[in-house]
Design a protein around this nucleic acid. Sequence first.
DNA 1: CTGAAAGCGCTTACAG
DNA 2: CTGAAAGCGCTTACAG
Lengths: 332, 332
Amino acid sequence: MRDVAALAGVGLKTVSRVINEEPNVRPETMRKVLDAAERLDYRPDINAGNLKRSARRVHTLGLVVGNVANPFSGAMSRAVEDVAGRRGTAVFTSSLDDDPQRETQIVGEMLRRRVDALILTTVRRDQSYLVREQERGTVLAFVDRLPSGILADTVVSENASGAALATRHLATGGHRRIAYLGDMHTLWTAQERLRGYREAMSTAGIAADARVLEDLSDEAAAYQAVQRMMTDDDAPTALFTSQNLVTIGALKALRDLGLQRAVALVGFDDIPLADIIEPGITVVAQDPYAMGRIAAERVFARLDGEAGDARTEIVPVTLVTRGSGEIPPRAS
Amino acid sequence: MRDVAALAGVGLKTVSRVINEEPNVRPETMRKVLDAAERLDYRPDINAGNLKRSARRVHTLGLVVGNVANPFSGAMSRAVEDVAGRRGTAVFTSSLDDDPQRETQIVGEMLRRRVDALILTTVRRDQSYLVREQERGTVLAFVDRLPSGILADTVVSENASGAALATRHLATGGHRRIAYLGDMHTLWTAQERLRGYREAMSTAGIAADARVLEDLSDEAAAYQAVQRMMTDDDAPTALFTSQNLVTIGALKALRDLGLQRAVALVGFDDIPLADIIEPGITVVAQDPYAMGRIAAERVFARLDGEAGDARTEIVPVTLVTRGSGEIPPRAS
DNA sequence: CTGAAAGCGCTTACAG
DNA sequence: CTGAAAGCGCTTACAG
């Protein structure tokens, strides 16, 4: 910048004004500065500016998702990127892999680089380690999972009622032997979905506990669980799979057993091409794009000065019937 | 930092030494500093440090992909994130949407925030606008598509030979009426895949041009194109779809026409659940994770001082036969 | 092993 | 409409 000022024959402050498009610069002066900047291939260093800038906004935001390679996280990232982009804000993205150690490590890295806000999918038991950072002015929002030990805007799916909806759909279709296949029990979403399943089972007057299988964290685990489960005399006639990878694992197991048209299946969270498979996969679809969008909008509202208590937004889910959930129970 | 120094009763430089884990600090002094930092909840500002730091490495990298919500880009992002994470480097990610204006805008935003390197999927005709930035020391790498007007490490798929492989597979299966359905012709990858198709057709002694349909940029366009195409007397008996969204659109059209078991289909780039659909979808699978990984490794090699000419790495593709590509031509 | 001085590239708060 | 001085939070290059 010093070189530009020298070449243009003006003061530093004038160059600064031109770069930041501040008013009160004569067109003629402006042109001189722009020419000099062009000739020297000048690039302003935004970090240097932020050092002294009063508001200390860096127009940068950190996003922690489960795994960008998973379509759920992909859609969420895209939404955050879109909202942030419209506000001239760049996004640091990082994947959590449901590893508690990574959570604090990633957050630390982002904080060290300065961000105006953090949008977080969490996995640790407790997020109180962020309270001091919040007090210092960093805006926080949580997405997909509720935080603990801290209050901040949060966006989640209708987990429990969505799971109840799925379970009720199967019960209404005549099923009594409905199994629950879920992700790690330590995850809040898994607990909520299990709760919804239990409530619906109870309402339908069916004992639930014998058919609950948890801690299936990937496709392979779900595949094996279903393979084993279906050999029982008392095998379920319907499955409720509470996460997209579990749904895919179960689907593959049913197909390999030749049971994809015999055993009903409803999944929580939509899966790609669910409508092309035969039978089509009935799901309770989440709206990850909306979740990301709302979280980003909350963050910008807070950065714009919105006061008031932390809000929790619940994003509706939708039952999409495509065939697999409407298979009737076998007479047995 | 000043406050920490005051509270600990030491000089600024000593605090700096402790924070940066430099040697030559007495354990006792170190403890005092650490205590003070803890009590004041001190967070070093890495950007302030970088201002004066000689190497001027900011341990931050920019990544521009097609669209993080697309599984291809998702896998690539994840790979870059993994390599960067191991090097203590954070990643700015942004989606291009094949919009030439966004390309320069995103790149500009990232450069203004300072990055050590940029990994880019491009869409503009020409990337010579980056030459001066490269001369200034920013490391550049291109992924998925070749740059023009600039030399830098580049990672691409075996586009032409992969497309030829797919086409040859169909021709070997007895097909003569093989249609090519491709993305925007302005994209380098689309041109390469078309070239591969043409070469394989020519080798098989089949005239190709009548069955080339380009500029299908999304699922809906591909769907309509296939719907229209299949009503011809002279309709193709096999389709080669040169991109994942085109494959999905074509798939849906064939299914809605009841032709999914009658018309052969080979796609370029794998699609999720391709093995569960019936028939399974035969594809020439790319390896987006490897592409992202190699691009990131190239970048770090250059940052570590590797000299030498720009390298172009070609990542192999694999023909995965699952059924749809092995459907024989109908007698007609 | 420790610290005071100068400066990174910019902005703020002024004065003119 | 324009610019000189002071300072943001750190590091470098010294000196001790």
